[in-house]
């Protein structure tokens, strides 16, 4: 079971809207734990004055995700609050799923030599929202907001599947830092192997953000045992969401609790996680 609240400004963005986001987000949290999302409860808090028609389009996109995943909406609640008390619309979803995994997936399963796979370009959702927020127009920019279950389901029987995470708030960098700390192992990644999205990089360039800190909403980091990353990779690439999946690094015994990256220039540094809200730099 998972629960999460969703606020996003703008409510509708290139690649999705708050309705789609609210179902994908909670369903993805279950999916990466190996559980098929099955039941959903939805809470709606709307600001007075939000056009009904607009609200209905968000509900429709939420319903679409439910239909495509076979999720049953079992209960819900809605409230209207006076102007100014929420920013347009606030959704919260609670999702229940069922897992058939015998050993739970988690960072505790990580072993030196494991491969780290990334399913798609990191940071696309975060970059899309940031561009909107700071008034940037970048061609080809779109959120990766998507339900991961159909891509993940075929992976679950792969022996040696260690753990998975959707790289939401804090981005890929944060997920890897959490893994390395939780497992007490090091992680090394290669910037050249990451399947970058050019538009996301442009936004980060302009605002001074680290693309490894930008959130995705349909992007999973997956750790599998080192011997056979190809099988997992093949299964991922067979799905449209995982077309650009790539092995980006590995788990090591060295530099425990830290994540190192070989940069595109061939230099090396640590990967950190962002502190607080990402704020654009001065010039």
């Amino acid at each position: 079971m998972t629960i999460d609240g969703y606020t996003v400004s703008p409510l509708s963005f290139n690649g999705g809207d708050i309705g789609k986001l609210s179902v994908c987000g909670s369903a993805n949290d279950l999916s990466v734990r190996g559980a098929r999302p099955q039941y959903l409860a939805l809470g709606v808090i709307a600001e007075e004055g939000l056009p009904i028609r607009e609200l209905m389009t968000y509900m429709e996109s939420a319903a679409n995700v439910c239909r495509s995943l076979g999720i049953e909406l079992v209960t819900g609640d809605s409230k209207v609050v006076p102007r100014g008390q929420v920013d347009g619309l606030f959704l919260s979803t609670c999702c229940i799923g069922r897992t058939t995994q015998t050993t739970p997936l988690g960072a505790a399963n990580l072993r030196p030599g494991d491969s780290i796979i990334l399913s798609c370009p990191p940071g696309m959702h975060g970059a899309t929202i940031a561009a909107h927020r700071y008034g940037l127009k970048v061609r080809g920019l779109s959120s990766d907001c998507a339900a991961l279950w159909p891509m993940i389901e075929p992976l679950l029987p792969v022996p040696g599947l260690r753990c998975m995470r959707d790289c939401t708030r804090g981005g890929l960098g944060t997920v890897l830092c959490e893994w390395s700390e939780a497992a007490g192992l090091g992680i090394e990644i290669d910037e050249e192997m990451i399947p970058w999205d050019e538009a996301t990089l442009s936004v980060c360039d302009i605002l001074g953000f680290d693309p490894l800190h930008m959130a995705g909403e349909g992007c999973a980091a997956i750790a599998v045992s080192g011997e056979d990353p190809d099988r997992a990779l093949g299964l991922l690439r067979a799905h449209s969401l995982g077309e650009r999946a790539s092995v980006i690094g590995r788990v090591t015994e060295k530099h425990q609790g830290m994540v190192g990256i070989r940069t595109v220039s061939g230099g090396t540094r640590l990967v950190d996680r962002p502190v607080g809200e990402l704020l654009p730099r001065i010039c």
């Binding site: 990256i261 090396t268 730099r281």
Partner: peptide
């Protein structure tokens, strides 16, 4: 500041270390 050198030393090297030689 994200551009401050103390922050950079901390975030990217955790001090003086640059020895990630064995990275892929």
């Amino acid at each position: 500041s994200t551009e401050g050198s103390c922050a950079a030393f901390y975030r990217f090297q955790r001090g003086r270390r640059t020895d990630w030689e064995h990275l892929p």
